[in-house]
Design a protein around this nucleic acid. Structure first.
Length: 922
RNA sequence: GGGCGCGUAGCUCAGUCGGUUAGAGCGCACCCCUGAUAAGGGUGAGGUCAUUGGUUCGAAUCCAAUCGCGCCCA
């Protein structure tokens, strides 16, 4: 039984380092409390910022429901940006915001009223919406803070704040003043029972039996290549006969092939691929195809409306398909979104002879007064039959949009809406030019938003809703004209700023108008207010004006917008429209987008699939730092994946990084940087190698941060910790740390390097795992360190530590180390030695390798660097002619009872090697 | 159906201008250690680069089609 020298070693003690088990769910809130206590965010802003401001403008999440994994990805990325820019010497204010108005909250609140059998007026409903929104702002704020996000949580921006609502009205007023805003007809999904417009999200598709008809339109101006006939007719098919009175055009696809078909004594024109099915459907057996043409050839031909004395020109449209019908689409711009767009392109009017209740108006002529279904349908069909235009009728089963409240089949009906013109004053072209001046990351984003801005129609700003900012327009009760004036809008804004936008719904028009105001059109003095509210995309599209320009520590434009790639159509787009319309420039300099979070198989997460990962659960079970490390591990420019399996691997990575830091901190317990640091020139070669390696790692890591490629940082850090530190450097220096004299240069030198490593790693990891980094930072033995790691700067690359020649030489040594490992492993397997520390290694090294290895000290010296690097007790190098060869044999001598090296200098009396005898003075 | 993208070991990621046998870390298997111990070390096995076709002396890389997946539209 050997004597116990354990107490004479400088082993790390548990209580002098961070615990191995992180217990993040419990510890993280304590660090968050610490940050609040020291006002971390305030201190971050107060810290010197040699690189100036960096403004990340937060896109507002909707204040409804708990946060989901998409929020976690987005906000964590933002937090990494904010914290890392701060540590890179920027001043980084971050004002989080929420989007409060809109349909989902209004609907949720309406349901609550409905459940209680109440029918609230608009003011009551709006008050309940405001409370509801505030409740979820508070809930989400707490959840975001639990994620560890740093920012201005005490003073976020809310789109329902009075000042914000007033600001929205003023931005709208600016667009009015610049001539962007107009009123016009546009088809919207309409419920004739509820007599209201519906949003797409309120539509439910259900099976329905419709009246489908084939109708012939007589041609009055035939296409140039038409066969000679005095009875050419164009065939259409529709499932909504009641829209025939509103027909203004016939649409064909330019690239589709069309056929002239002789049958029934007439010549019919329809899509060639649909000739056979159509003839069969209408019961025609004998027919002849006289010739074919293309859709493009048909443009300019003119048909006559089968009922009314009116022309119906042939127009081209890409959405026409040869899937069903006749390949010719009956086009009624007042009754369909596509029809409307085509009508606009060809300058057709928007005819909508149907009122709010779904009854034909005077414009429907003989059909006036009939409800469109079923009477209107029937009357139209009968009329078509009587004029000989009806080729066939049959019931048709399909899925059709229904009202989610009352289950009534919906109709498309043109209604008067407010618009922002996208082509006013060269707006679209200026927007496209501004896009070119923005940096889009990844670069594909530019093509995406460019296509969307190129193709987007005018912006429909009005919504027939309650929970939003009222459109500040008045109508003259006498002449009915709409009154939209900048001065009146400013008056309204001023009142809203004081009283909130509810006031628009609780007070009469007089309240907002100056005394004696008279209608500019007719001079009358009685007015009513517009009841529509603004699209919520207008709210969020205004945030750059109402947040960046109103808070003194912010600035317009923002340096960065960072959102999911769906916002190319959403927020990036609406913000750009308003910025170009009011400030003539883009509101952002850089736009960074991330993908969506999918499950482990790359599929969309959905409740019904049961593959949803809740960030709240992950935080509760594993901690926010693990979730954040997952975010950093992802190449997020594309879609990212998340599953329990993936989280398990990330948690493993977290533990490995944590343990590496734990070991370093533990071995720095008796180290004081000011007192004990060893000057670079006195460090041994391995230590200098480590510092050189650290600089290379730093270069890579800092570059990864600069390019927002956190996953590259993550991977390199993992590799650095596992391969270069744990498996090599830290393992090799254990002998020095534990066994050399406490104050020796050998031990203090290793600690000096440990300090550099721990300090650099902790700071670099801080933006990603802020709680863990803080935990380590508080243990780091540095004099005059900032109170929080988040107030420190990123480590800089120290050029004086870089050393290419040294790295190159050690590249060779590490190759030999691998050969030694293989030889030792073989010896172990052959039972020639029990373990590496009982081995003596003889390396037969050919030139030029021998020139490198031969320069190191003698085989059995306690400071035999090669033996330590190889992880054996003794190592020798001999010149060789052939290939590199490694001989392994049991090391001669005895095992030192203190340092466990097998050395010939161990004496029987003390069981200690010469080095250990000297160290403990035995 | 259209626009924009993605697809490289079990997982997460590299892979430059087309050029050796496609790399890394983790995980996995086996072994060692018990002085980082709910840790640490060593060795090793894993890939038809989604599929098919093409261009080329040569393709993970360029082109086309197909399949699968995602976002935005219809």
């Amino acid at each position: 039984m050997s004597r116990n020298y354990r107490d004479t070693l400088h082993l790390p003690k548990d209580e002098q380092t961070i615990p191995m088990r992180a217990n993040l769910p419990e510890q993280e809130p304590r660090w968050q409390a610490f940050w609040r206590e020291i006002d971390l965010y305030g201190k971050m802003l107060a810290k010197p910022a040699p690189n100036g401001d960096f403004i990340l403008h937060d896109g507002p999440p909707y204040s409804n429901g708990d946060i989901h994994i998409g929020h976690a990805l987005n906000k964590t990325l933002k937090d990494i940006v904010v914290r890392s820019y701060c540590m890179r010497g920027y001043r980084t204010p971050y004002v989080p915001g929420w989007d409060n108005h809109g349909m989902p909250i209004e609907n949720a609140v309406s349901k609550e009223f409905l459940a209680r059998g109440e029918k609230p007026d608009k003011a009551t409903l709006r008050r309940a919406c405001r409370e509801y929104a505030q409740r979820f702002v508070d809930i989400q704020r707490e959840q975001f803070e639990r994620l560890g996000l740093v920012g201005e949580w005490e003073r976020p921006y809310l789109t329902m704040d009075y000042a914000f609502e007033a600001g929205i009205v003023r931005v709208f007023g600016e667009l009015v003043a610049r001539g962007y805003i107009y009123r016009g007809l546009r088809p919207t999904l309409w419920c004739p029972t509820c007599q209201t417009a519906l949003a797409d999200a309120e539509v439910e598709y259900e099976p329905k039996v419709s009246d489908s008809i084939y109708v012939a339109f007589p041609v009055v101006k035939p296409p140039s290549d038409a066969p000679a006939t005095d009875n050419l007719q164009i065939l259409i098919w529709t499932t909504t006969p009641w829209t025939i009175p509103a027909n203004l055009a016939l649409a064909v696809h330019p690239d589709l092939e069309y056929a002239y078909v002789r049958a029934n004594g007439a010549v019919y024109l329809l899509a060639q691929p649909l000739v056979a099915p159509t003839m069969e459907a209408v019961g025609v057996r004998d027919y002849t195809v006289l010739g074919t043409t293309t859709g493009a050839q048909l443009e300019g031909a003119i048909a006559r409306h089968p009922i009314f004395e009116r022309e119906s020109p042939v127009v081209l449209a890409d959405y026409v398909s040869a899937e069903d019908g006749t390949g010719v689409v009956h086009t009624a711009p007042g009754h369909g979104a596509e029809d409307f767009a085509t009508g606009k392109k060809y300058g057709l009017p928007v005819l909508c002879p149907v009122d709010a209740a779904g009854v034909f108006t005077d414009e429907a002529g003989e059909f006036r007064g009939l409800p469109i279904t079923p009477d209107g349908n029937r009357a139209v069909i009968e009329r078509l039959r009587s004029v000989g235009a009806l080729l066939h009728y049959e019931p048709y089963h399909h899925n059709y949009p229904h009202c989610w409240r009352c289950d009534t089949p919906l109709i498309f009906r043109a209604t008067v809406q407010w618009f922002m013109s996208i082509d006013h004053a060269g707006h679209r072209a200026r927007a496209l030019e501004a896009i070119r001046g923005v940096r889009w990351i990844p670069a594909e984003g530019e093509a995406r938003i460019t296509a969307m801005v190129q193709n987007r129609p005018d912006w429909t700003l009005s919504r027939q809703r309650a929970w939003g900012v009222g459109i500040p327009a008045f109508y003259c009760e006498a002449c009915g004209e709409a009154i939209l004036q900048s001065d009146l809008i400013e008056r309204v804004a001023g009142i809203i700023e004081r009283e909130g936008s509810d006031v628009w719904f609780t007070h009469p028009a007089d309240y907002f108008l100056p005394d004696g105001f008279a209608c500019p059109h007719c001079g009358a003095t009685r007015f009513r207010k517009e009841t529509d509210v603004l699209d919520v995309w207008f709210d969020s599209g205004s945030t750059h004006r109402l947040v960046l320009e109103t808070r003194p520590h912010l600035r317009w434009p923002a340096d960065l917008y960072l959102e999911g790639s769906d916002q190319h159509r959403g927020w990036f787009n609406s913000s750009l429209m308003i910025a170009i319309g009011t400030r003539d420039a883009a509101p952002y300099r850089t736009v960074l987008t991330h993908g969506f979070v999918l499950d482990g198989e790359g599929r969309k997460m959905s409740k019904s699939e049961g593959n949803v990962v809740s960030p709240l659960e992950v935080i509760q079970k594993m901690g926010a730092d693990v979730l954040r490390l997952w975010v950093a591990s992802c190449e997020y420019f594309e879609d990212v994946r998340l599953s329990d399996e993936i989280l398990k691997y990330v948690a493993d990575a977290y533990r490995q990084i944590r343990n590496t830091l734990r070991f370093m901190i533990g071995n720095l317990a008796d180290f004081d940087l000011a007192r004990d640091a060893v000057p670079y020139a006195q460090l041994n070669e391995l230590d200098r190698w480590m510092l050189a390696r650290l600089q290379e790692y730093l270069r890579y890591a800092l570059h990864a941060y600069e390019s927002f490629e956190y996953h590259r940082f993550y991977h390199e850090t993992r590799r650095f910790c596992n391969v270069e530190l744990s498996a090599f450097y830290l393992d090799v220096i254990k002998d020095r740390l534990y066994a050399e004299a406490r104050e020796s240069a050998a031990r203090r030198g290793a600690q000096t390097v440990l300090y550099e490593l721990a300090s650099a790693l902790t700071r670099l990891l801080a933006p990603i795992i802020p709680h863990t980094a803080e935990e380590v930072w508080q243990r780091l033995p540095a004099p005059d360190k900032p109170v929080s790691v988040h107030l420190a700067d990123f480590p800089a690359v120290r050029e004086e530590y870089r050393n290419a020649a040294l790295l190159e030489r050690w590249e060779r040594i590490l190759e030999v180390r691998e050969a030694v490992n293989r030889a030792v492993e073989a010896a172990k397997n052959e039972k020639r030695i029990p373990n590496p520390l009982s081995a003596h290694v003889l390396v037969h090294a050919p030139e030029p390798l021998y020139g490198v290895l031969g320069a190191y000290p003698t085989p059995t010296a306690p400071d035999n660097l090669l033996a330590r690097v190889f992880g054996v007790s003794q190592a020798e190098v001999a010149p060789a002619d052939g290939a590199l060869q490694v001989e392994v044999r049991p090391a001669p001598g005895q095992k030192c009872a203190r340092c466990w090296l097998v050395l010939p200098t161990v004496d029987a009396e003390t069981e200690l090697c010469a080095r250990c005898r000297a160290v403990i003075g035995a």
